[in-house]
Design a binder for these strands. Structure first.
Length: 565
RNA sequence: GGGCCGGUAGCUCAGUCAGGCAGAGCGUCUGGCUUUUAACCAGAUGGUCAGGGGUUCAAUUCCCCUCCGGCCCGCCA
């Protein structure tokens, strides 16, 4: 082995993907990354002397439903891109869909073009099974609307990026192979297979003297096969035998066909393909998951320097998220999509989540989503000097918050998330607003746009309560009375309560009256409350009853307490 | 087996990289209200900084070992 990354001194600083984002000078990791990128390029001033834009890349195989974890590949880069743009640089943010990778397993769940999550029983799973081992772009779209499986899931990812309002250029790996963009890099690798073997063998034991770093798509059966028998760079062709491919526990059977294909009808193995992308696209920065940190990254550095003769990009490792404590996984179906998340919280809250320290293991907890939203609300208040911070909290908020929203607007209104969930117990939109105003969450002079956006959170909290079935998941049974029956004491007590409310009283007075009525009839206070919750929610518990009833329309409340409708 | 990242209050997280009194929000408890029913206000409570050892006047912070969660050394955010 010569000049591997491990025995040069070039690995002391910016090649360490763990160290790049952890400079104590900065309160925001993306600033530390940007510092390193500027130093590396040597064009730290912003006087317009840089010829080429700074290129930031991410990438993923379109293996199934694009879930929250995949957005690390976009959003970690997005923050770095925004910081660099602030500093006056021209930045391109790229995303490669690694869509010539092979379909290795069929996910238990898929998403159709409208983001409906569907099980395998709703598609032709058998057809998918017959396509195992073939490139994603050669597998038919299971929903029959797009050109391929790969196109379908790439398109879904792109829609989520659009929903977040991000400016990202999508690049199809398959398209790059087909249009010849990869040609010179494939030729570089295959023209000196000794060097390729030598470099890679330092990282992979299975590389032997026969190893040829190229895969071919079989012209007969479409399998992406690894058994390359000859390379002819004169004619730019590769000969292969369609042998079985082992991938983990799976074996994809080859058809045995022996054929010859163009360099454009195959692909480089991942370990070479990644550095080839860096070379082809001129990548300056790329974040990647911890899975690549100890394997693909060091070999990629070595291949970049010693096969392609380029500098590798500035790297950054991010930790994986869990979803309510479990690993995110397209194949197992434990996923949450950006589409779903945006039904639960505002985009800026989602961006806030991704602005946190990349190396911390984090759980995205839908059960406790209120905690994340509360944290964001406080962060926002720090930015607007509406709250005192500890240590460098305020400094961080001042730095990061403007990157989360289109435009900081001091007049914005945030209804606390769990209170929004309480408001969502009624579907009367004007009542929601009235209660929010009365409780002081909406100032009298609030602009219309701020009220509208604040109340949009109520719908999101409603969706959250329904999705989790939590303690806020109450629904006022307005249209029909729940099937209940009470003993005569309780019926009388409810009737007295109706009369009291008919006289017109404030919420706290009604609350008091519930207690005194219960005493009067010598019934357990809890039983009377339970009866109330049953009548209005068909549940045994609920929000503080007196104030809630006071805010509903009186005629309805009185009639319901009398069990008339 | 070898290497890497993380572990701070019941929960979600700052602080650790530059050693100097252990922090926030939520929750919980108490009061506001002679009455348990979740929204509001006030106050209080809350810790073996995963565990052990070392260096130091001083360690959550630096070093070593161990445990737990995860990753890499096949493929794959």
């Amino acid at each position: 082995m010569t000049n591997s990354v491990n025995d040069t001194d070039s690995n002391t600083g910016t090649d360490d993907p763990y160290a790049v984002a952890s400079d104590a000078e900065n309160v925001f990791w993306a600033d530390s990354v940007a510092d390193v990128i500027e130093t590396r390029r040597g064009d730290t001033n912003t006087e317009g002397n840089e010829q080429e834009p700074i290129v930031i890349k991410g990438g993923v195989s379109p293996s199934g439903i694009p879930h929250l974890g995949h957005f690390n590949e976009i959003l970690r880069g997005y923050f770095v891109a925004e910081v660099l743009r602030e500093r006056g640089h021209n930045v391109r943010q790229l995303f490669t869909s690694d869509d010539r990778d092979r379909l290795r397993a069929i996910p238990r769940q898929l998403a159709d073009s409208d983001w409906n999550i569907v099980g395998l029983d709703e598609v032709d799973a058998g057809a998918l099974g017959r396509n195992l081992g073939r490139p994603y772009t050669d597998v038919p779209d299971p929903f029959g609307t797009r050109e391929s499986y790969g196109d379908h899931f790439t398109q879904l990812l792109r829609e989520s990026v659009d929903q977040l309002g991000l400016d990202v250029e999508f690049i199809s790996n398959t398209a790059c192979y087909e249009d010849g963009s990869f040609d010179e890099y494939i030729e570089t690798v295959l023209s000196d297979t000794d060097t390729a073997r030598t470099v890679l063998s330092a990282y992979q034991d299975k590389v032997d003297d026969e190893y040829l770093p190229f895969f071919a798509i079989c012209t007969e059966c479409g399998l992406l096969t690894e058994d390359i028998t000859d390379i002819d760079l004169e004619s730019e062709t590769v000969s292969y035998r369609c042998s079985d491919v082992e991938a983990g526990d799976e074996v994809f059977s080859g058809c045995g066909h022996e054929g010859t294909i163009s360099l454009r009808d195959g692909k480089l193995p991942w370990r070479f393909e990644w550095p080839a992308q860096w070379a082809m696209l001129g990548v300056d920065f790329e974040p990647f998951g911890k899975d690549h940190a100890e394997g693909s990254w060091p070999s990629g550095v070595d291949i970049a320097e010693n096969v392609f003769d380029i500098d590798p990009p500035v790297p950054m490792v991010y930790e994986w998220f869990t979803l309510d404590g479990e690993a995110l996984s397209s194949s197992s179906g434990n996923v949450v999509t950006v589409d779903e998340v945006l039904e639960l919280l505002e985009p800026e809250v989602l961006l806030y989540f991704f602005a946190k320290e990349p190396l911390k293991q984090r759980d995205f907890s839908i059960e406790r989503l209120d905690q994340l939203v509360d944290e964001f609300d406080r962060f926002e208040e720090l930015y607007f000097d509406e709250r005192d911070g500890e240590g460098r909290e305020t400094e961080r908020a001042k730095r990061v918050y403007p990157l989360l929203v289109d435009e900081p607007r001091k007049e914005r209104i945030r209804i606390p998330y769990t209170f929004a969930a309480v408001l969502a117990m009624t579907d009367d939109v004007s009542l929601r607003e009235e209660i929010a105003r009365r409780e002081g969450h909406i100032p009298d002079d609030a602009p219309d746009w701020a009220v509208e956006e604040a109340l949009a959170r109520v719908e999101r909290a409603r969706t959250w309560a329904r999705r989790t079935g939590n303690e806020f998941d109450y629904e006022l049974k307005r249209s029909a009375i729940p099937a209940v029956s009470f003993d005569s004491d309780i019926e009388s007590a409810l009737s007295d309560l109706a009369a009291f409310i008919e006289d017109g009283h404030e919420g706290e007075a009604i609350q008091q009256e519930i207690f005194s009525t219960a005493r009067e009839y010598d019934i357990d206070v809890g039983d009377l409350f339970t009866a109330g919750y049953q009548l209005f929610f068909d549940e045994e518990q609920g929000p503080k009853l007196g104030p809630f009833l006071a805010k509903l329309d009186q005629e309805f409340v009185v009639a319901r307490l009398r069990q008339e409708r």
